[in-house]
Design a protein around this nucleic acid. Structure first.
Lengths: 156, 156
DNA sequence: ATGCAAATGCAAATGATTTGCAAAAAGAAA
DNA sequence: TTTCTTTTTGCAAATCATTTGCATTTGCAT
């Protein structure tokens, strides 16, 4: 796998990075109870490749246990977000979509036709952002870089 | 005013750029009727420095004419967005906030404490984005770069 | 001035998300 | 394992931002 100094495609590396951290232990340590719904939602989040929204998570969850409610999904997403276990995105201003907060920070390229999300990372861009913020008298708390694109026709 | 090759702060230039384009003529040419509500909303948009949401625009509007309804504000924002006269942002996943589409493209630095928005532009970052998208096999349709930051204490 | 399509206000509908509350389950203690 | 306390859940109703249906008004070409 070729990594270029400027930027790396993370998607290809995701499975390697993705050795599910033991969230249950983490959560318990923070005084959070491990319930059946939470275990199921956590499992969905740690085993998916995509960036599902609450409704999608809910549907996957009720296939495993149909007693889970949508509000529990929302409550769990808020909990996990506060704990830093997941990240929330609002692509296009649509409903929140979530992803496991695995190791590396990264940004997103969203396929405007399919909604697919490709992850990437660019140290150069991060550096420039820092530079800009500093010059404006700010410290960056977090940032959001989203590219909305369409698959390019190779021939034209 | 010193412009650096890497990036420029647009805010300072905004008033200069901001010689209100004749939207009324533009709209009429596109077959859109100029109504009292539209004129008022357009005026608010072209004369403000900030990035107000629909509710804020509504409140400013009813001060001028209290018969304007919130749905008209929303309908007008959709219309103007389709015409390319304004841009819509969903900072932090909050309600849509709007700004006049004046000349230059730019990105935003949002003050997490006050909600204030500072505009900036970086050709270098744009270039890198293009590069990344191309390498991933995509053409960029549009993008969104938001820095969320807090005023830095100069002394620490 | 006149007529008709386009735009408005209002209220009700929608979609995403949150919340109140009584019942159920988790984990600590006995 | 039983009991107790506290957290979490499911459900339904509430909220928030935004859109829509419809009867009425208005812009503007004639």
């Amino acid at each position: 796998m070729q990594l270029n100094a400027f930027w790396r495609i993370i998607k290809l590396m995701k499975h390697a990075i993705n050795q599910k951290p033991d969230y249950e232990k983490e959560l318990r340590k923070a005084g959070v109870r491990i319930t059946r719904p939470r275990r199921i939602i956590l499992d969905i989040l740690t085993s998916t490749e995509d960036h599902p929204d609450a409704m999608k998570i809910f549907h996957r969850a009720i296939e495993i246990d149909d007693s889970i409610s949508l509000s529990t999904v929302y409550r769990t997403m808020n909990l996990l977000e506060e704990m830093g276990a997941i990240h929330r995105h609002a692509f296009n201003g649509g409903p929140s979509r979530f992803e496991q907060a695995h190791g590396e920070h990264h940004d997103h390229l969203i396929d405007v036709d399919t909604g697919d999300v490709i992850e990437f990372q660019s140290d150069k861009i991060e550096k420039l952002q820092e530079e800009i913020a500093r010059a404006l008298g700010y410290d960056i708390i977090h940032h959001r870089l989203e590219l909305y694109g369409r698959k390019s026709k190779p021939s034209e």
